[in-house]
Nucleic acid binder design. Structure first.
Lengths: 212, 212
DNA sequence: GTCTATAGATCGATAGAC
DNA sequence: GTCTATCGATCTATAGAC
């Protein structure tokens, strides 16, 4: 048995990360209760005692993977405001990334997990919302307020409006995907859905002179 | 020990219903995996063997209580269209009942349960959506189409518009309640939230002449 | 139908050797 | 740190008496 020499070998032999990766996969697929430490250990290629030497308990391991997932998934979602394009273009682009994130399988599985375990661990659920949804909400609200100050939009309550735009983009897409009724509509339908939502938002909140 | 004489006594001694009631409470509180047949039997005041004489398995009992809950909770939600009041009044009234249902503790617990178990039992989740959300969606879409035909609204795609109105009314209210971030905002805030959503919807989809 | 008692399996967590 | 082996608790479901 040689010691690992390349970076890939060192990374592959980092049991801590192996365990985290295996736990993420297992919790997302099976849920908290059905995920067993035996399965996580097997998937990570270590013994169960090793898992417990890295993480105090099943609960601690769960919290670790949830926090990592929240940061990794939601961070990329930002309003890309170049300042040189219209609110319509900026919002449409933002809506596309949001809907993409919304229907991403990992994102859906994380959502299921958080909702399922919220009653057992309200603190973790609350922290996840503040690190995820609340950040995105504030980002969008700030953008709407800024464009209103510039006169390119006329939004009365930026936070309410942001919530409502997020809600319109959710529609029933999210719940249908969460319940496995429909994973992801065809691209054409999705595009039309997004355009309809943005158009409605701009008719409701566009500048009064030009209803772009 | 006298035999039960009044209807109330007969109902109270109906073990089938006692078990259903106990199972509903237990599943909603604890989730599918954490709910134990021991606890359900104890809460119903019967032995575990009796539970199994009424329901083939834990899974069958779960399905029974889910189907009953879906029917009971979602059925009351209807667009009350007297035909004599404006869309604004009709939609505002509908929005109030919808948000009330959305934030109802039993409704939230049912939602958590369905989402949590959707991957394990996609058929049950799908049937629940078709019996609940899909019905409400169709009801609202039909109303929007009808008002458009009458000229009191001008909705291009009634289904999309209905999804978007539901979504606006959700905002982040539902997710915050599901994650136990905020159970229910003060009545004033809620009213303002609803009025803002209806106003935005009517600016987007009202008849072109009068943007009521 | 209804009970008590228990089978049979699985789980989270740990002891002890190396 | 990492392993094997196991403890003690808990779960679904059933056998058997009444």
């Amino acid at each position: 048995m040689d010691a690992p020499r390349t970076a890939a070998e060192r990374r592959a032999s980092s049991k801590h990360d192996d365990i985290l990766h295996a736990a993420t996969e297992t919790f997302l697929e099976a849920g908290y209760e059905r995920a067993s430490m035996d399965e996580i250990a097997a998937k990570a290629g270590v013994s169960k005692a090793t898992v417990y030497s890295h993480f105090r308990s099943k609960e601690a391991l769960f919290e670790a993977i949830i926090r990592e997932l929240c940061q990794r998934l939601v961070t990329p979602l930002r309003v890309a405001d170049s300042g040189r394009v219209s609110p319509k273009e900026t919002l449409t682009e933002f809506a596309r990334s949001y809907v993409e994130l919304l229907l991403d399988p990992s994102s859906l599985a994380l959502h299921r997990l958080l909702v399922a375990e919220a009653t057992r661990d309200p603190e973790l659920a609350g922290a996840s919302y503040r690190a995820g949804g609340a950040q995105a909400l504030r980002g969008l609200a700030d953008y709407l307020a800024q464009e209103t100050a510039r006169g390119t939009l006329s939004v009365e309550d930026p936070t309410f409006a942001a919530e409502q735009l997020f809600g319109m983009l959710n529609g029933h897409l999210q719940v249908r995907a969460l319940l496995h009724v429909e994973a992801k509509p065809p691209r054409k339908t999705l595009d039309r859905f997004i355009q309809t939502a943005i158009a409605a938002f701009l008719r409701a909140h566009g500048p009064r002179s030009e209803a772009a």
